[in-house]
Design a binder for these strands. Structure first.
Length: 194
DNA sequence: AGGAAGATCTACT
DNA sequence: GTAGATCTTCCTA
């Protein structure tokens, strides 16, 4: 079981593509001597200022907004309704955007409670279980030395069906469906499965 | 000091 | 599927 972080080129594409490609990839958290590994099963894509749901549309300078335009592969962590949400910066060269990681399937290092209570489905709960907070904002997620990373799956080329829906909790959404999830996976967050 | 925020839980039609 | 209460921190004034 070798951990190979995703490379920068992976994130140098449209957030929509990256959101789909992230499904099935691994989210790895080093917590002291413990190692927590989960498989990403649900994501959402956010674009630049043309996207009314993106923080980029709020204008800048503003917390987090600069990061949307910055180096890809970095974490973007902010608080919404008392929950920390984990995003990764992804966009084409000179673009802006990010992918929100909404849910994962616990694979390694998680307690039975986490698995039974589905504590990794939903962006807020996921951050709580992984102890992700503002400290991670701006940190690279593709540096093997860091405590939080995005890695390739252990067995590549696994097949699964990707489904799409509108983004959750967004007041002004785009016409395009930008929430993606693995069909049939029980750790996809319950609300609006289709 | 007040309000907003990409959430979550519960309880309805 | 929608609606409300409550959630916790950050932004703006």
């Amino acid at each position: 079981m070798k951990l190979t972080p995703l490379n920068k080129e992976f994130f140098l594409r449209s957030p929509e593509i990256v959101a789909k490609q992230l499904l099935g990839k691994l989210l790895v958290r080093k917590l002291g001597s413990k190692l927590l590994i989960g498989k990403i099963v649900e994501t959402e894509a956010y674009f630049g200022r043309e996207d009314p749901a993106s923080r980029a549309s709020l204008g800048w300078p503003r917390y987090c907004v600069e990061l949307l335009y910055g180096e890809v592969g970095r974490a973007l962590v902010y608080m919404v309704h008392g929950n920390w949400l984990l995003n990764v910066v992804a966009h084409e060269t000179n673009g802006a955007g990010a992918v929100l990681i909404r849910a994962m399937e616990p694979l390694v290092g998680f307690s039975d409670e986490v698995r039974e209570m589905k504590l990794t489905s939903g962006p807020g709960r996921l951050s709580k279980v992984l102890h992700i907070d503002k400290r991670f904002n701006g940190m690279s997620l593709i540096n093997l030395k860091n405590e939080l990373l995005l890695c390739h799956e252990f067995q590549r080329n696994q097949r699964f069906k990707i489904r799409a829906s509108h983004r959750i909790g967004v007041s002004k959404d785009l016409k395009k469906k930008l929430r993606f999830f693995i069909d049939g996976n029980e750790f996809v967050s319950n609300i609006r499965r289709y």
